[in-house]
């Protein structure tokens, strides 16, 4: 199985209320110099084996249709290579 990870975050320029709250909390703990925090989602998919480029196209479709809301979110996909057959 190929492990695929999707990261979903608010688009740049969209105020992220959670990120802002975390940034404020970090500052109040004394962590200076944190200029911005963005909180997002981490989604792991276990995909059946397939050709990587086809898998990527498939996962992109999943992101556009369900995993991310294109009005306010961006997504990033990481596909780790399949383990070699034992």
């Amino acid at each position: 199985m190929a492990k695929t990870v999707v990261y979903v975050t608010y688009k740049r320029g969209v105020l992220d209320p959670q990120g802002e709250a975390v940034r404020g909390a970090l500052a109040s703990l004394g962590f200076q110099g944190v200029r911005g925090v963005r909180v997002g989602k981490y989604i792991e998919l276990d995909l059946a084996n397939g050709r990587p480029e086809e898998q990527r196209a498939e996962v992109e479709k999943m992101c556009r249709q369900l995993l991310a809301n294109p009005v306010l979110e961006d997504f990033r996909i990481e596909i780790s290579p399949s383990a070699p057959p034992e």
């Binding site: 608010y10 969209v14 105020l15 209320p17 959670q18 709250a21 809301n69 009005v71 306010l72």
Partner: peptide, 17 residues
Amino acid sequence: LAEAGLLPGALRRNASL
């Protein structure tokens, strides 16, 4: 309805969280 694209825009977490 917004998620379905029947209405424009999207609803985020409240600014106050």
